[in-house]
């Protein structure tokens, strides 16, 4: 019987500095074969620690992780053949050329560029004109494409991508995610990716919102949006900077965040739309435009992260 889950993670815990920093506090989750699973959370939430344990580069304090049915601690060598890991920081050899880097990673896994070229075809043709260039001299977007090629060249079952598109422009990001979608559809490769871009989070099958070493919630993007219970208002006026300052000053405001060309506002208990309008008019925003807004993933994330910010040490 085929294994339904590519990753099974059971009460995984990891701390640093003799327990002073709890990076992971007993995290459990499963990733199905062929699934695109997103890890979303603020800096310091524990995402990179999770990736490093999954990639067999870090030992957990307790709990267990299986990749393709194999234990990441006891069977690490076998796990490594089945995963492709793209760390958050550029980790290829800066003094080797594009082609040398790729050939090196292929050779490490006992394969060749030619053998698995089909997996990287779309992306490699974009960087192939620069194959003689040293990896350290590539631009950010090209480094990222090369890193993906190197992570794929041994035909892994699972891709682990730690913020692969940070610092990448919107066009390249779109291409990158189209590439991931294709890898899943055509080759059944599963993906776990973290990202600070909420439009990318929305493209995952399921996402886990992480904070302070724990999963706050794990659901489909639609499910997460559906669980947002607050009434959300979209607010604009002719003086946007003053509007935000005024919103933040009011006791009736629970949260006020920039959202494209408007602000998304939630109200404190007991306050309603009429109170909001009255307050804004009293502050000189007679032209204000208030309407009810549909929440997006980013609203949900901010609602959850807001509490974490309040808990930060002062």
């Amino acid at each position: 019987m085929p294994m339904p889950f590519i990753v099974t993670c059971d009460t995984l815990a990891k701390s640093y500095r003799r327990g002073k920093v709890q990076a992971l506090r007993g995290v459990s989750f499963e990733v199905a074969e062929g699934e695109m699973f997103g890890l979303i959370g603020p800096d310091g939430a524990g995402k990179t620690t999770a990736f490093r344990i999954l990639a067999t580069l870090l030992l957990p304090d307790s709990g267990s992780v299986a990749v393709d049915g194999l234990d990441v601690v006891r069977q690490y060598a076998e796990v490594r053949r089945r995963i492709g890991y793209m760390p958050g920081r550029f980790s290829l050899y800066a003094d080797l050329t594009v082609e040398e880097n790729l050939a090196f990673f292929a050779a490490t896994f006992g394969t060749t560029i030619a053998e698995n070229r089909h997996l990287i075809e779309d992306i490699y043709t974009q960087i192939e004109p620069f194959r003689e260039r040293r990896a350290g001299k590539l631009s950010g977007g090209m480094k990222q494409k090369l890193a993906l090629c190197c992570a794929l060249i041994h035909a892994p079952r699972l891709l682990l991508l730690d913020e692969p598109t940070t610092g990448v422009d919107p066009v390249s990001r779109k291409e990158f995610w189209e590439m991931l979608a294709k890898l899943r559809v055509e080759y059944g490769i599963s993906v776990i990716a973290s990202t600070p871009y909420m439009d990318e989070a929305a493209q995952c099958d399921r996402i886990a919102l992480m904070q302070d070493g724990a999963f706050l919630t794990t659901d489909t993007p639609r499910g997460i949006i559906g669980s947002y219970k607050q009434r959300l208002f979209r607010v604009r006026s002719g003086r946007m900077h003053a509007l935000l300052a005024d919103l933040n000053e009011w006791e009736g405001t629970q949260t006020a965040f920039s959202f494209g060309e408007a602000y998304h506002v939630t109200l404190a208990p007991g306050k309603d739309e009429a109170d909001l309008r009255a307050y804004l008019v009293s502050k000189g925003h007679a032209d204000c435009d208030v309407s009810e807004a549909k929440p997006e993933i980013e609203d949900c994330f901010m609602a959850l992260a807001q509490t974490s910010e309040e808990n930060e040490p002062r």
């Binding site: 959370g41 603020p42 800096d43 913020e163 940070t166 610092g167 600070p196 909420m198 900077h241 935000l244 300052a245 933040n248 965040f257 920039s258 980013e298 994330f301 901010m302 992260a305 807001q306 910010e309």
Partner: peptide
């Protein structure tokens, strides 16, 4: 670059000011 949504927005408030 690479910062979570809440922190990005707090940062923009500094820019506005």
């Amino acid at each position: 670059g690479g910062v979570d949504p809440v922190t990005r927005r707090r940062f923009w408030e500094l820019i506005y000011r």
